[in-house]
């Protein structure tokens, strides 16, 4: 099947789904609790997309927290993951600790984080960061450990320095693993961003969601959920774009093997 045909097929499935929603809503005829898709879409357009003030005051801070938490976790997670991946001893010491910490559901930490860090942006960024750092660490460790020994030995044979070996051999070779971690953690980051804004927040998309629910503005609840879906989808699409460029070699190499 060609690319265009594939796209058409995927779009038709989506269209069928939305049409079902529309039809059900028309049949149920309860615009307060079960608005039609077109109503939700129109509301999303008017109350969010065509509303720069709301975007600036609520969407922007949410995205900023998400990216700050996820970005910090990416830097820390890759650094820690490389260290653990390279050292067997570090792995032996640190693995049980990491295994325990990542088993804690991050939302359970929210009350504690509020007590320790207050209700400001710092707390929310910290919670997102803490929640998403584990998959990055684990996948980076896996990626580093899977570096082909021939590559490591080639580096040794040709007398490459530590920096060259890290930047030109270990990190690129671990790239597929690292990106797998980044992708998983990005979707978790969206979840944690919303959760951190449901309580003790004064702005953000999550905060707007709760406000809409409390004000019985069901249409706005639906539209905000749709907005979050679009946000998560867009963020993932952007990451995949970056990944596609960075790992072009990997896809090519895989194709050759297959």
């Amino acid at each position: 099947m060609n690319a265009l045909g594939g796209l058409a097929l995927r779009l038709s499935v989506l269209a069928a789904l939305l049409a079902t929603w529309q039809l059900m809503a028309v049949i149920v005829a309860d615009p307060v609790f079960w608005p039609t898709f077109t109503d939700v879409g129109a509301h999303l357009a008017s109350s969010w997309i065509a509303n720069p003030t709301r975007l600036a005051e609520h969407l922007l801070p949410s995205v900023a927290r998400l990216l700050a938490g996820w970005g910090a976790a990416a830097v820390a997670g890759i650094a820690v993951g490389v260290l653990i991946g390279l050292s067997r001893r570090a792995r032996d010491y640190v693995n049980p600790i990491i295994g325990f910490l990542r088993a804690i559901p991050p939302p359970a930490l929210l009350p504690l984080f509020i007590v320790l860090l207050g209700i400001g942006d710092g707390m929310k960024v910290a919670m997102i960061g803490f929640g998403v750092v584990w998959p990055i660490i684990f996948n980076t460790v896996d990626g580093v450990r899977s570096v082909n020994p021939l590559h490591t030995e080639t580096g040794r044979l040709y007398g490459l320095g530590a920096a060259d070996r890290l930047l030109r051999i270990v990190l690129p070779a671990a790239g597929p693993g690292i990106f797998a971690g980044l992708r998983i953690s990005l979707s978790i980051a969206v979840i944690l961003m919303v959760i951190s804004e449901l309580y003790a927040a004064t702005n953000g998309v999550g905060f707007q969601l709760v406000q809409a629910q409390r004000g019985f503005r069901t249409l706005d609840v639906w539209a905000t959920i749709l907005l979050l879906g679009i946000l998560g989808y867009a963020l993932n699409a952007m990451l995949e774009l970056v990944e596609g460029r960075a790992l072009r070699w990997h896809r090519g190499a895989m194709r050759t093997v297959a």
Binding site: L150, T154, G159, L160, R168, H250
Partner: peptide, 20 residues
């Protein structure tokens, strides 16, 4: 196949040992 660096061009593969 596995001693060459897949993420580098042929040129960069050959050039790498010369860095030091």
């Amino acid at each position: 196949g596995r001693s060459l660096f897949g993420w580098m061009t042929v040129h960069d593969n050959v050039d790498l040992p010369l860095r030091r």
